[in-house]
């Protein structure tokens, strides 16, 4: 089955002021579709965290959002340094964010687990120097 709505967003590198633009756009879209507010919230939290990772770690990238009759699929990817130990990265509190970013209140090491918690399906693919790809699925019903 092909998606009904397709959107693509550029995610800039190192610019916190623009992080959240894509997720905010998607939230407006879902509101117009009449999606249940709780599902909208989960989607926007998951997507924001994924976006933020690309801003902080990934040197910028893209987000593709596809809306199907029954689900939302979000694909966020970058060509950044990648993740060495995925299992470790998934641990709550684990972070490789530099101090400068932690001082801004980011990089608490909750991002990936937050995405996982808010999505129905979550797949993370990464290899050192080959970038990171995050696949998020959230069901609409």
């Amino acid at each position: 089955m092909s998606s009904i709505i397709k959107k693509e967003y550029d995610i800039p590198a190192n610019d916190f002021s623009l992080a959240g633009e894509a997720s905010s756009n998607v939230r407006k879209l879902l509101t117009q579709l009449g999606v249940n507010p709780t599902i909208i919230k989960r989607t926007s939290i998951a997507m924001y965290e994924a976006e933020l990772n690309v801003v902080i770690h990934g040197n910028g990238g893209k987000a593709r959002v596809e809306i199907f009759e029954d689900k939302i699929e979000i694909f966020v990817f970058d060509e950044g340094p990648g993740i060495e130990d995925i299992e470790l990265a998934m641990k709550e509190g684990y972070s490789t964010a530099p101090d400068s970013i932690r001082e801004m209140g980011f990089g608490a090491g909750m991002g990936l687990s937050n995405i996982k918690r808010n999505s129905d399906k979550f797949v993370l693919e990464s290899e050192p120097n080959k970038g990171t790809r995050v696949y998020i699925t959230i069901y609409l019903y």
Binding site: I4, I5, L29, Q32, L33, G34, E69, L140
Partner: peptide, 13 residues
């Protein structure tokens, strides 16, 4: 929201 029916809303979107 564009329509009370979500499928119709999607088509409108």
């Amino acid at each position: 929201k564009l329509d009370d029916n979500m499928m119709k809303a999607m088509m409108k979107m």
